[in-house]
Structure formats: C-alpha cells, structure tokens
Amino acid sequence: MIKSRSRLALALYALMAVLCIPFLFPTWWMITSSFKPVSEIFAFPPTLLPRQFVTDAYGRVFELQPFARQYFNSLYIAVAVTTGTLAFSSLAGYAFARIRFPGANLLFMLVLTGLLIPSEVTIVPLFQMFLDVGAVNTHWPLILVPMLGAPSALQTFIMRQFFSGLPHELEDAARIDGLGRFAIYHRIALPLAKPALAAVGIFTFLYSWNLYLEPIVFLSSPDKFTLPQALTQFVDAYGGPMWNIQLAAASLTAIPVLVVFVIAQKQFIEGLAYTGLKG
C-alpha cells in the first residue's frame, strides 16, 4: 500500500517535472541569455548557462533609455488602474448581483459586450477621442480605458459572479441591524470578497503591466513610455535588436512580478479557495 502510494507520488513528480520544461525553459533562456555576450545567445546548440558571464547589458539598459522613469510609469499606471478597477468593478459587480433595478439585464449585456471587444477594434476611434481632449501622449488613455472600458468588463463580471454566490442570510441580518446598502457593501460584502478582489487585482495589474499596442499608439516621448514599449527600443544603429540588452530589460520587467507572485501566491490561491470563486 505504502509502496504503491510512493510510486504514484514519484510518477506524479515525474509528470510535473516533464510538464515544467516548456514553462520554464523560455524564462530560463531569457534570464540566462541576458548574461551572455551577443555572439553566444543564438549559438547552437543553446547553452543552459552562460559560458562567459557578462553583466554589462544591465548597465546599458539604464544608459540607453530613461529606464528607471519608464519602470516608474508602468508601475504607477498599473497601480492606478488596479486601484480604480477594484473600486468600480466591485461596486458595479455588487449592484448587478444584489440590487434589482429596472434595466439591469440590458445594462449587464453592455458589460458582456465590453468583455468581447478586442482592443484592435476600437483603437482608432479611441485615439481620435483622446486627441480631441488633448490627452494623446499622456498616460490618461492607458489609465482610463483599462480601468473603465472594455478590459474592466471582465473584472466586473468576476465580481458579479462572486457576489452572486454569497449567502443572502448575511445581508439580511445586516439589514435587520439597520445597515444601508453602501454600508452592507462596504462592511459586509467587501471583506468577504477579498479572494475575488485578489483575483481581479492580479488580472488587472498583469493586464496593465503587459499592455503593448496602446502605449505604442498613444505615447511618443521616451520619458512617458511604459516597459513593454521600452523593450522594443533597444536597437542598434540599423534598427536590429540588441538582444542581450533587450533580454536584460525583459528580465528586469518580469522578475519583480514573479517574486511578488511567489510571496503572495499562498494567500492568493488559498484566498480564492476560501469562499470559492463561483463561475
């Protein structure tokens, strides 16, 4: 019995280890290659560790671009989008789940529509609109559209699904205690919604952090660029990419988020499971 259990465990480990390869190798390659000289990066067969360990690419990242500034831009935009989305999506999600008002279904269809819009589809009208109010080459389009436009619809959808799954009894009790709608939302529903808020927060942060098309279209001065856009700017005199520097910059953008995930994942996943994110 014990033997068969441990044999099963061994098989599971082996399976997971094999499955890891496609997930791990590209990231591994990206990080290790940033420490290789250019000539070694595309050497065949690829080397698992740099034969010649060099770190000057990391210094060059900061020399060639206002990279610290761009890092700050990405960070503050992502934080602003995440904070705003958490507030507005939880409000809207709560109302769609709990308050019965005329037209709710129709308005929820609008949310579902938002869920379906690829950003390529509306980029030109959005650009025209932001140009009209003088907001091109500012960070406003990158904050407002993800926070309230099509990308936020998914977050409202998740919040609605979550609040729908909460037992009614809690709220009924609060209502008998004389709490108003906002107080119920604020003091009862939101604390229970921590796991869903965690999911929404992570989705939103990653969405904003990785946004690529919009910054390219809306921003034009390097000190306003965001990180994914900055990655494409490390090019040599003929427009060819400077691989080691690009990869160093890409590693710098990925590693902190990864570290935060490692630290926070226990709370995140177990939090999600705590009351269960209902579909």
Binding site: F130, V133, G134, A135, T138, W140, L144, L148
Partner: peptide
C-alpha cells in the same frame, strides 16, 4: 472625477 479628468488634469502641451 472621471468625467472631468481628461480636461481638468491634463497637463497642457
């Protein structure tokens, strides 16, 4: 805030 943001907070070119 949202309605005003694009105009009120925009730094002029």
């Amino acid at each position: 805030l949202l309605a005003l943001a694009p105009t009120a907070f925009m730094t002029p070119a």
